[in-house]
Design a protein around this nucleic acid. Structure first.
Lengths: 110, 110
DNA sequence: TTATTTCATTGCAATATTACGATTAATATG
DNA sequence: CATATTAATCGTAATATTGCAATGAAATAA
């Protein structure tokens, strides 16, 4: 049914999977890396930078904004985007805790 | 259309998105957390533990195994699963580098 | 006003994902 | 042997995702 049964899982598990899902497309990874790299707002050149059509980029930006990872500000006829640093840090805490579950060596039994 | 244009992105960007995608479903997050929690192999009770049907769990396990994050070993009529700790650590390096991009405060311009 | 620019939205086609019933394969047990 | 147990695979339905052409909305420029 193409539909995750979220009610069977904890809020934490659903939150982790939502953050992970938004990173699950290379275009969104590329957009975020570019925003970090220029370390300020980007106005307009993301379409040239990434190489997908303008409506496609706009859709990816919408998803990133919906999760709160970026901010968008209208600036004349263009819109400036940048990382939402507070929310990024909060997301990082959640994801890092998941990734850092104890990895005890020589406990493998398979 | 329904298909990511991976050839437009770097290997690193594609790798990050592949790891993220597998974490993009709460059932797979729950499976991994359970494997870490018991800190050994689990034989069979994942279906009871997670609450989805057996073919569904089997499919999620297949994806985790395909990415190398878990190991499966046949043990009589059942199969034991556990975290592939080496590969988990390698994955963690890639993901942590992505998450830890510099977050410099007071640089926001929007 | 009439372009022009920039980005969002709509609508659609192609593909992917999720879930599970039915079945199969493999091993164990009586 | 026959039967149970366990998990993978097949097939399919429902839904989600991706990508873009066409269009729309809002601000600016001529």
């Amino acid at each position: 049914m193409g539909l995750a049964k979220t009610e069977m899982f904890t809020d934490q598990q659903n939150e982790i999977s939502l953050f992970a899902k938004v990173f699950g497309h290379p275009a969104r990874v590329a957009i975020l890396q570019h925003l970090f790299k220029i370390n300020s707002c980007v106005c307009g050149d993301l379409v040239n930078e990434i190489g997908l059509a303008q409506p496609t980029i706009s859709q990816h930006l919408k998803e990133l904004k919906h999760l709160g990872l970026i901010k968008g500000n209208v600036e004349g006829t263009s819109v400036c985007y940048c990382i939402h640093r507070e929310n990024w840090t909060a997301m990082k805490t959640v994801m890092t805790e998941f990734l850092n579950q104890d990895v005890i060596e020589n406990q493998d039994c398979c």
